[in-house]
């Protein structure tokens, strides 16, 4: 009898232990419990002599920008406005999800707390540099999010890549190649197919 009680207690302890130390079942931030940010804090770094913000320059101030305007002022500086519209939409999604993730994970550097800075440390941002073509792409993916299958908001990262190449090596690294997005768009793939090519095990979710 005692053996049964002891066995039962051991099983309870084991279950409790495994329940405590089980892999994280719940996602911190999902599209179901996290609204799209309304603003984002952008650290403005000092400019180098050529007029471009220096990724190693000191932080001059932190500017709070409406989130959608931030995406509009990043996309023409990361993608090229004359590129294919599907490449621009894929880029708009990457820019948005990158910013959304970092809005949820702010950093403090040199006494400034911010979400992103305006250089290639995060995403290249120039205030009021938005263009009609890229604005349309931002608007087209406005109600969509590209997340993990459980809805977790993740950073969609990207790199320049190489011109006229599918940039397979970036697919293996879960990063989108900017030139690769243009490559696939010119060959008839739409923006969702481009995202699926570079980011595996992700899903498209519609948000309010």
């Amino acid at each position: 009898m005692n053996k049964f009680i002891l066995g039962g207690l051991s099983a309870l302890v084991f279950l409790g232990f495994t329940a405590l130390h089980a892999p994280e079942a719940r996602a911190e931030h999902t599209v179901d419990n996290t609204p799209l940010p309304s603003t984002i804090r952008v650290a403005i770094r000092s400019e180098n002599p050529s007029g471009e913000s220096d990724p190693r320059g000191r932080i001059v101030w932190v500017q709070t920008v409406p989130f959608e305007e931030y995406c509009q002022d990043v996309l023409p500086n990361e993608w090229v406005p004359s590129w294919h519209v599907e490449a621009l939409k894929a880029g708009a999604m990457a820019v948005k999800m990158f910013a959304w993730y970092h809005h949820l994970h702010p950093v403090t550097i040199d006494g400034f707390t911010f979400d992103v800075d305006n250089t290639v440390n995060f995403q290249s941002f120039r205030y009021w540099s938005r263009q009609p073509e890229t604005n349309a792409a931002v608007q087209a993916v406005r109600n969509a999010a590209y997340v993990k299958p459980n809805g977790e908001i993740i950073e969609l990262n990207y790199r320049a890549g190489y011109r006229n190449s599918p940039n397979w090596q970036y697919r293996n690294a879960q990063k989108m190649a900017q030139w690769g997005s243009q490559y696939w768009a010119e060959r008839g793939r739409n923006w969702v197919q481009i995202l699926q090519f570079y980011y595996m095990d992700r899903t498209l979710r519609w948000i309010r």
Binding site: S50, G51, E78, V80, V120, Y162, Q178
Partner: peptide
């Protein structure tokens, strides 16, 4: 004076 910088995607390509 305000100088719009070159697109950095092009700068990456130029260096390569």
């Amino acid at each position: 004076l305000y100088q719009v910088p070159y697109h950095h995607v092009w700068l990456v390509e130029l260096a390569d």
